Amino acid sequence: MQHLWKFALPQKKKVNNDPPKTLLAMAVGIKQKKIVNKIVKKFLSIDSTVMLFHYDGFVNGWRDLKWIDRVLHISTANQTKWWFAKRFLHPDVVSEYDYIFLWGEDLRVDYFNPKRYLSIVESERLEISQPELDLSKSEMHHRNTVRTRNWNFNRWLEMRAPVFSKSAWRCSWHLIQNDLILALGVDFKLGNCAQGDITKNVGIVDKKYIVHRRIPTSGGFGGSGVNKAPHC
């Protein structure tokens, strides 16, 4: 038995002061276009690669946005972000990225700064992380992910907006199933992919927080135009 991260392909060393290369991957639907637009612009501002998984098939409905040709688009109806991630984010395919943001589409990022977030993640050497959720505005959360103003980070993870280092993603990709919806319970297992020490390499970054909106998303698009899937 060997840890899966030991099988990672050799990577080029970063030049001093080079910013980390990041990939933002999201399962999106046309109904959340305004929210997604704000998220994408935040990440494009730091030259992230953005990949949108369209679970409702409405790719053309995004063409009025200025960044439409700067991001990658994959369209398959009625699938969740975990199905897309398992199928299209194989660790070898995304190995050039230092961090993979696998986010939901129902997240408000008004107070989130991805550049500052990454600096905290790197300084704390977090292999798997997530921004904190603002209790006063978020509609759904685990009590351990509530924002606290006295900390930079704490040691817990949920699956709403996970961020993986490349080595942690290589391990995590093997653990996740492509038929996951809520991914309940997976958060307790992914710590095993954090270079072997969940007490040091997994955590919530409190200083850069997001707001989770409790909106039914990620698949289940029916002929009536109503998203019927559980919250993801």
Rank of each mutant, 00 (worst) to 15 (best):
R116A: 13
I120D: 14
V121K: 07
E122T: 09
E122G: 12
E122W: 01
S123T: 03
R125D: 15
L126T: 03
L126S: 01
L126Y: 04
E127F: 07
I128F: 02
D134V: 05
D134K: 07
L135G: 06
K137S: 09
S138V: 03
E139H: 04
M140Q: 09
M140I: 15
H142T: 06
H142L: 12
R143T: 12
T145M: 10
V146D: 08
V146G: 02
V146F: 10
R147A: 03
R147K: 07
R147C: 04
R147W: 09
R147G: 01
R147P: 00
T148K: 03
T148P: 00
T148I: 02
R149Q: 08
N150L: 14
W151V: 03
W151L: 14
N152S: 09
N152K: 09
N152Y: 04
N152V: 04
F153A: 12
F153R: 12
N154K: 13
N154P: 00
R155V: 04
W156M: 05
W156N: 11
L157I: 15
E158V: 13
M159Y: 06
M159H: 07
M159K: 02
R160V: 13
R160F: 10
A161V: 08
P162I: 04
P162F: 07
V163G: 09
V163M: 10
V163D: 09
V163T: 14
S165G: 12
S165Y: 10
S167H: 14
S167R: 15
A168T: 13
R170I: 03
R170L: 14
R170F: 02
C171P: 09
C171G: 08
S172K: 07
S172E: 08
W173P: 02
W173M: 09
L175A: 05
I176V: 13
I176M: 15
I176Y: 05
Q177A: 13
N178A: 06
D179Y: 11
D179L: 01
D179G: 05
L180R: 06
I181R: 08
I181Y: 11
L182P: 00
L182N: 02
A183I: 04
L184I: 08
G185K: 06
V186Q: 04
V186H: 05
V186W: 08
F188I: 13
K189T: 06
K189D: 12
K189Y: 12
K189M: 14
L190C: 04
G191V: 01
N192P: 00
N192A: 15
C193Q: 09
Q195K: 11
Q195G: 11
I198T: 10
I198N: 07
T199R: 05
K200W: 02
K200A: 10
N201D: 01
V202Y: 00
V202T: 05
V202C: 04
G203W: 01
G203N: 04
V205T: 03
V205Q: 01
D206G: 02
D206R: 04
D206C: 01
D206P: 00
K207A: 15
K207D: 06
Y209A: 06
Y209C: 04
V211W: 02
H212G: 01
H212F: 10
H212Q: 07
H212L: 01
R213Y: 08
R214A: 12
R214W: 11
P216V: 08
T217V: 15
T217F: 07
S218R: 03
G219T: 11
G220W: 06
G220Y: 13
F221Q: 09
F221P: 05
F221N: 10
G223Y: 14
G225S: 15
V226W: 12
